[in-house]
């Protein structure tokens, strides 16, 4: 065993403590890279988290399309695919909370908390890397949708717009999931803790049936549901304003505004809660 020499010029305490914006961005990049590197090494996770939404897509598109007739000049397949894509984001965003709970349990979060990095860098780094993951997943799912015969009726720009909505929605859920991960602190419990509030919201939204066809008591819930806002926005972008108005009684502009309002609210509230939780320890 050799002894330690110190040939490296180490920065002084003041230099290390300073947090100019460039450095905060650097920290976020380093931490996001770390998450992506870990993700690439978990081949099992990649394979299964890709198969799961593909399976849902196929099941919903083929099983229900044969039994449900919406009328309104739209096939159930075209109606349900944007919703399945939005739903797949909710599943994938759960991974963020699970990953954070692992970091908490392994002590990595404490390691980061004793380093002179910005208090927000860990969480923002996580949101950045997970958004990239969700972006890739969306593109893959859109390709799969085309393969099973989904029609983007609103052209290329609409398709890209839908992908943007999907990723933004996933990002907001990532913030929520991150907060759950920190609050629960146990990887096995994160999944149910995210599911319990999210799953009922998915089913009481416009995902699988137009809101007007849901049971009457459920309709008010469905109207103020953030998932309805995300699905209507995605559906409107993919299928066009006319189709959206026919099946959902809402215009694309309204649903985009609703979605934007929900997005800001969810991101701000849960990022704040999560950062607070991270700082306080």
């Amino acid at each position: 065993m050799t002894t330690l020499s110190q040939p490296i010029a180490f920065p002084t305490a003041e230099e290390r403590a300073a947090l100019p914006p460039r450095r905060v961005l650097g920290d976020i990049t380093i931490l996001a890279q770390r998450n992506l590197r870990r993700l690439l090494r978990n081949t099992g996770l990649i394979v299964f988290s890709t198969i799961q939404p593909l399976m849902q897509l196929i099941l919903f598109a083929y099983v229900f399309t044969s039994v449900v007739d919406l009328g309104e000049g739209i096939s159930y397949k075209d109606f349900v695919v944007p919703a399945v894509l939005v739903q797949s984001m909710t599943f994938s965003a759960m991974g963020s909370g699970v990953g954070i709970a692992y970091d908490l349990q392994s002590g990595m979060i404490d390691r980061f908390r004793v380093l002179p990095i910005a208090r927000s860098a860990f969480l923002v780094g996580r949101i950045v890397s997970d958004s990239l993951r969700l972006g890739l997943q969306s593109i893959l799912l859109v390709a799969a949708s085309l393969a099973i015969g989904f029609h983007f009726q609103n052209g290329f720009v609409g398709a890209v717009g839908m992908i943007v909505v999907l990723v933004l929605f996933g990002m907001a859920l990532t913030a929520f999931s991150a907060w759950i991960g920190l609050a629960v602190g146990d990887p096995e419990s994160v999944q149910p803790a995210v599911f319990i509030p999210v799953l009922p919201l998915v089913f009481t939204s416009s995902a699988f049936a137009p809101v007007s066809r849901l049971p009457e008591w459920m309709q008010p819930v469905a109207y103020v549901n953030p998932i309805t806002a995300a699905i209507d926005a995605a559906r409107g972008l993919a299928l066009g304003n006319d189709t959206l108005e026919r099946v959902s009684d809402v215009s694309l502009t309204t649903s985009l505004l609703q979605f934007a309002a929900w997005w800001v609210a969810i991101v701000v509230v849960f990022t704040w809660l999560a950062v607070r939780r991270y700082r306080r320890g």
Partner: peptide, 28 residues
Amino acid sequence: QLVRSVIGLTGQYSAVDEDLTGRENLVL
């Protein structure tokens, strides 16, 4: 923040990233 820039901590349980190599952990 200044305290964090002059200390090192080795906690009671190893705080290491299982999915990184030893070298990657240190560089991080």
